Computed example of a mutant assay.
Amino acid sequence: MWFVYALSAAVIWGVSYAASGRAIERGIPPVLFFTLYAAVATVMGLAALLATGRLGMLFRIRGVIGDDWVWLVVAVVTSGVGALLIYLAIGEKNATLASLIEISYPLFVAFFAWAFFREVQFNAMTVLGAALILSGVAVVYLANRA
């Protein structure tokens, strides 16, 4: 199922970026868009926790995650900053180009998984895929430097 979830997320992000690009280019400031996104995500998250019977976990996070609570804070804060930055990038250029550069993030996932946790998540084929992604990012950047 992981592949279905990941591919579905890619489709949904495609819709989201195209629509957010339209809203931002029509005058909605990226920071306002991000604020609306965060508000909707909060409501959806609380509804999902309630529907799954996990709302109580909000009050037991430290007990559930133990000493790794710092990583939860890092994950949540960086997710928010990343979302804000992509909307700012969309506002500065456009959704397609911003997302084509952002697509390099799996390389950083692998690097930080190794740097923080000493997990090696690459094999020969993922290294090849990473090289293709990096070369694609370089082509997009060089073709759109203005």
Score class of each variant (00 low, 15 high):
76 V>I: 10
71 W>N: 00
73 V>T: 03
115 A>W: 08
73 V>E: 01
12 I>G: 09
87 Y>A: 12
70 V>C: 00
63 G>Q: 04
57 M>D: 15
1 M>L: 12
9 A>R: 05
100 L>F: 05
24 I>V: 11
44 M>S: 15
4 V>Q: 10
39 A>T: 08
107 L>T: 14
106 P>L: 03
4 V>K: 12
8 S>L: 14
107 L>R: 06
99 S>M: 10
30 P>S: 08
93 K>Y: 00
41 A>C: 05
15 V>C: 14
29 P>N: 09
110 A>C: 11
77 V>H: 03
106 P>T: 07
37 Y>F: 13
96 T>S: 01
49 L>Y: 06
42 T>S: 15
102 E>L: 09
135 S>L: 15
3 F>N: 13
75 A>L: 07
16 S>Q: 11
81 V>C: 01
79 S>N: 11
63 G>A: 07
142 L>A: 06
105 Y>Q: 14
138 A>Y: 08
77 V>K: 05
91 G>W: 00
73 V>W: 02
39 A>K: 01
86 I>H: 02
118 R>N: 13
116 F>H: 09
146 A>T: 06
99 S>P: 08
85 L>D: 10
61 I>W: 03
8 S>Q: 07
13 W>N: 13
29 P>V: 08
31 V>M: 04
114 W>I: 10
52 T>V: 02
140 V>Q: 00
90 I>E: 04
83 A>K: 07
4 V>F: 12
39 A>Q: 02
68 D>N: 04
69 W>E: 07
115 A>V: 11
112 F>T: 06
141 Y>N: 00
74 V>G: 12
123 N>S: 08
140 V>E: 02
64 V>H: 12
127 V>S: 09
79 S>F: 08
125 M>D: 11
21 G>H: 00
139 V>N: 03
63 G>K: 01
122 F>D: 14
49 L>V: 09
134 L>E: 10
13 W>R: 11
136 G>Y: 04
86 I>D: 06
63 G>V: 03
75 A>M: 08
52 T>A: 05
101 I>Y: 12
123 N>Y: 13
116 F>P: 07
128 L>C: 07
7 L>S: 11
50 L>S: 14
112 F>S: 10
62 R>T: 10
122 F>P: 05
6 A>W: 08
15 V>H: 07
41 A>E: 05
103 I>M: 08
117 F>K: 06
82 G>T: 11
31 V>I: 12
18 A>H: 07
131 A>P: 06
66 G>K: 03
125 M>F: 13
121 Q>I: 05
